[in-house]
């Protein structure tokens, strides 16, 4: 029961306790235990919400309250990969 989490750009530097070959992006297969929302993944990885820019869940632009489940693919982009100024975009969230 895992979620594929892809960590892009400088966010990789935030992930300390995971073995990495330095390849970009960092791909993590995270156990879904205690993970219900995007924000739960960020919390587990000690990444602040304001350190991210784009978030995708299965190819759909998503927000912090988007629900995730086994088999999902999640992509987190770092702040300096932001191609937006304000949070204009309608993010897919579950609540």
């Amino acid at each position: 029961m895992t979620i594929l989490v892809k960590i892009f750009g400088d966010l990789r530097k935030k992930i300390k306790d995971v073995e990495s070959d330095g390849a970009l992006p960092l791909n993590l297969h995270m156990n879904t235990e205690n993970i219900e929302y995007i924000k739960d993944i960020l919390q587990k990885l000690s990444i602040e919400e304001n350190e991210t820019s784009h978030i995708f869940v299965n190819g759909v632009y998503a927000g912090f309250n988007k629900k995730v489940k086994d088999g999902d693919r999640v992509g987190f982009f770092s702040k300096n990969q932001a191609l937006l100024y304000k949070w204009y975009f309608k993010r897919e969230e579950d609540d």
């Binding site: 892009f8 784009h54 995708f56 190819g59 632009y61 992509g75 982009f77 990969q81 191609l83």
Partner: peptide, 15 residues
């Protein structure tokens, strides 16, 4: 920081 190619991963993630 990344040039226009910053889009490669973003558009790939967007499918």
């Amino acid at each position: 920081s990344y040039g226009t190619s910053v889009l490669v991963n973003i558009i790939n993630e967007a499918g």
